[in-house]
Design a protein around this nucleic acid. Structure first.
Lengths: 253, 253
DNA sequence: ATAAAAATGTGCGTTTATCGCACAAACCGA
DNA sequence: TCGGTTTGTGCGATAAACGCACATTTTTAT
């Protein structure tokens, strides 16, 4: 465990300021950031000006916003693992073959993060996820696929601590019921979620990796009607499993 | 100008440590990071352990590497501007229509950064760029398209300070000649680069925005033979110009 | 247009966190 | 197994950061 003496408080505060800029908050004043982070206004001022100085944030009057330079930090992760050369083409090829846009996500604490995305023609845009989008674990197919193959401690931790928010009328929020759904996902090697996260939307996901060591999950989503035929679901499941197999060697460190 | 007293040195050091992880360096030891950043080993140790504590970096033995959580920082930029709902679908639709994978990049200091990417069937993967990939300005179509529409000070600064590296035998490295090519790009509203950045590859790019206020650039690349027919280039230019027009309102702050 | 409220800029004394060195311990490579 | 390299750690010194209060600027409401 990292001791207090090994933590740089100033750096941690700085990262909290950087993190204050998110999907819901793009243009923030010093007072806004102080509100979000809880830090004194003078602290926030120095830290955000440091980000401006480094080029990660721009200032327009009293309002600050992120610059594309923050993408370079993500590029450090994606480029370093050859995502552009290997993962993305694999995902794109399987998306075209399945004629569904396949997404790839990874566990990140008590949620998942979109890491890559295959594209296909004329797919309806739902929530509009991008690389870096956060996905709740408990009500989503990708989340349940990840947890179903996660190690015991990670799964149990998420099942007891991840937010169990009501997204639709059908969202299961009872943690015991979610645990059972996750266990079933683990046994059958896929997760199917119907109308629990996005109204009118179903999703199917398959883990990448092996039980106890989940690297990622791949999944598709669409109007729930598209998932009502069992043979269609089975065809999609097989295709996602094929995609997962192809991706596994590319994602192993 | 931000005064020294408004800069947090510790936070700036921390960001330098985070930035040490890049396309070429994914797994780094404390000694490696100290080498890359020039900071004392003890400083580096505290800062990288802070990143581990915050979940952006993982430690395996003596080696540290980025986690998917850094993508969430990028998500702050992408999600906040609706890239998933608006920019990406527009880029994808234009890519399918043109039957070429169109990339979107933005200026970032003395280089450009890939921000989004359209996908098409069976496109050869060249360098394997991803979101966050850095692109040199002087030898690339996207770079020249950006500079051709940039404000005078940005363009002149880049022309004198951006690296003028020799990527191929055909790379123009004479700054006066590059300046002329950039000026031509600005006048004609597009840049065409042939075999200057990737051997055997040509690229075409169009700026998004208006002269003096460039928001981004869109571009395609492929085997130079594909760009040899003037009517093909003109067709692609028109399509990219249409894509740029469609994207402009989406990218304006 | 004006006044009040809110936000920001700034200086600076105080405080705390960070620095950085040296030695011990652990790890790695030959 | 041993030597070289790297890392862990403690801790006194110091620099950086804190944080408060007042001045200034900006914004909002009337």
């Amino acid at each position: 465990m990292i001791g207090d003496k090994d933590i740089s408080l100033t750096f941690a505060k700085g990262m909290a300021v950087l993190k204050a800029f998110d999907a819901a908050r793009t243009h923030l004043s010093i007072a806004d950031i102080a509100g979000v982070t809880g830090y004194d206004r003078a602290i926030v001022r120095r830290l955000v000006l440091t980000l401006v100085h480094l080029g990660y944030v721009r200032q327009s009057g009293r309002v600050f916003s992120l610059t594309p330079r923050v993408l370079v930090l993500a590029g450090g992760f994606l480029q370093g693992r050859g995502y552009g050369k290997n993962v993305q083409p694999t995902l794109s090829a399987h998306s075209r073959h399945l004629e569904e846009a396949i997404s790839l996500a990874m566990l990140d604490g008590l949620e998942a993060v979109y890491v890559a995305h295959g594209d296909v023609e004329d797919r309806p845009v739902s929530i509009g996820f991008t690389i870096g989008s956060r996905i709740p674990l408990l009500p989503t197919a990708i989340g349940r696929a990840l947890l179903g193959f996660a190690s015991d401690d990670i799964r149990d931790g998420a099942l007891s601590e991840a937010p169990a928010e009501q997204f639709t009328a059908d969202t299961i929020t009872d943690r015991a019921a979610i645990a059972e759904a996750v266990a079933a996902s683990g046994r059958q090697g896929f997760a199917l979620v119907d109308n629990e996260f996005e109204p009118g939307v179903a999703a199917l996901a398959v883990p990448v990796g092996r039980p106890g060591n989940v690297l990622a999950a791949v999944g598709i989503s669409g109007p729930r009607e598209a998932f009502s035929a069992p043979e269609h679901v089975e065809r999609a499941r097989r295709a996602l499993a094929g995609c997962a197999s192809a991706l596994e060697p590319l994602l192993a460190d």
